[in-house]
Design a binder for these strands. Structure first.
Lengths: 222, 222
DNA sequence: GGGGAAGTCTTACGGGCGTTCGAATTTGGC
DNA sequence: GCCAAATTCGAACGCCCGTAAGACTTCCCC
């Protein structure tokens, strides 16, 4: 709230992110807690305590706990989809509008996997999004189910790249690929680390991305 | 409880499943509701109402709501793992103890995918198990994380089938395959149906199994 | 520097939750 | 047919939750 009066640090008045400080504290704390423990297991009191703000803040700034969850979901989904769309667009430019399977898959998988990096600013956001997919409110689930416009850009690109396959087959293979992606929860990494006795390290996301792309591309080439 | 006094229908005294009738009603109703709506979204009152029994039944027969969830999880996991272990055993017998990748993956994926069939008795159980993996209690999550003995039989078989690959690579590919499997929730099918405008039908589980096996095998062959 | 808006704080309400208790009922062995 | 154990039942307890109300404080513009 003060930056507008602070002439020196005027560059801080960037984005629309710089809203009421309290609102942002709530947003960040809630995203983190939801991502780590799940929506239902985190109370409004947990959030406001972690954010160091008053209990009433959630309802004042967001309207309700559900609306808070939805706003986090909306903002992060838009961010992620923007990055993906940009990569797909670049792939189109590089390939005269007909990118090969590998480049389409790269546009789909690279942004979320980059978010997974240990020092990435959006590391926790990706966990949030993966969780919201299965544990979100009815509203979120409805949107995931019906709003497929973003995903359609990728399925169309894949259909164009593999006109020899039946559309049904392409859709299933995309489904499989998304399954691989959505399996990247912390808990699953823990399990994998136990199974492999520590030989797998999810910290190297570039290597993970390469592995996953190779696996998915081979699946599509089958 | 009557079957023991009912001489004629003595064949009904099979398994240990035939416990107190009320206990079974609760078990079945809870499994269904948990699978459809999630653990946190289903109250003890919902369960007992659906089962047509008294509210106190859950605590009387199972101790607590958490313990009920755990018992369902334990029983269904054991069932599924038994079927998988049997198939892996058969694959070992057919191949002198060194089954190829495809047969190992088939042993891993076939039982759960068979459960997915629209008329299969365990259709709802699989949805329950997939959900419990991410929405379960701390106890369940702890077991999933630390008890990898069952899964190790499969990773060992895969390591033996592909000694040319680094173990790390094999573990990751198994992780990807499991991701594909765990993505088979009703909600994801719905989404896929919308995206493909109805051309995909998850009702034909044999076709789905074939597709998934082909995809995963190709991923392993990469 | 005054006034209206925006934000923050304390407090509490109403409700749903898992669980428990004691009484009532049913069951099974003799 | 009786008695003790097992089960079912209705009712309530205590807790935590999301949300709202109202007083108070801070901010911003004129």
């Amino acid at each position: 709230m003060s930056p507008t009066t602070d002439a020196i640090a005027s560059h801080e008045v960037e984005a629309a992110e710089t809203e009421a400080a309290t609102k942002n504290l709530v947003f960040v704390a809630a995203e983190r807690l939801f991502a780590l423990h799940g929506f239902q297991n985190v109370s409004v009191r947990d959030i406001t305590a972690a954010a160091g703000v008053n209990l009433a803040s959630v309802n004042y700034h967001f309207g309700s706990k559900d609306a808070l969850l939805f706003e986090i979901f909306r903002r992060r989904t838009a961010e992620l989809n923007r990055e993906r769309a940009r990569m797909l667009h670049e792939a189109n430019d590089r390939n005269a509008g007909k990118p090969p399977v590998r480049e389409v898959l790269a546009a789909l998988l690279t942004p979320p996997l980059r978010w997974l990096a240990p020092d990435h600013e959006r590391r926790i956001s990706l966990q949030f999004l993966i969780r919201a997919r299965s544990e979100g409110t009815d509203e979120i689930r409805q949107i995931l189910k019906t709003d497929v416009s973003h995903l359609r850009r990728f399925s169309d690109a894949l259909l164009a790249a593999r006109p020899d396959l039946s559309p049904e087959e392409v859709y299933w293979r995309l489904h499989f690929t998304l399954g691989m992606l959505h399996n990247n929860r912390f808990a699953e990494f823990d399990r994998l680390n136990v199974l492999s006795e520590g030989t797998t390290s999810e910290g190297d996301v570039e290597a993970l991305l390469a592995r996953m792309l190779a696996f998915a591309e081979a699946g599509f080439a089958a």
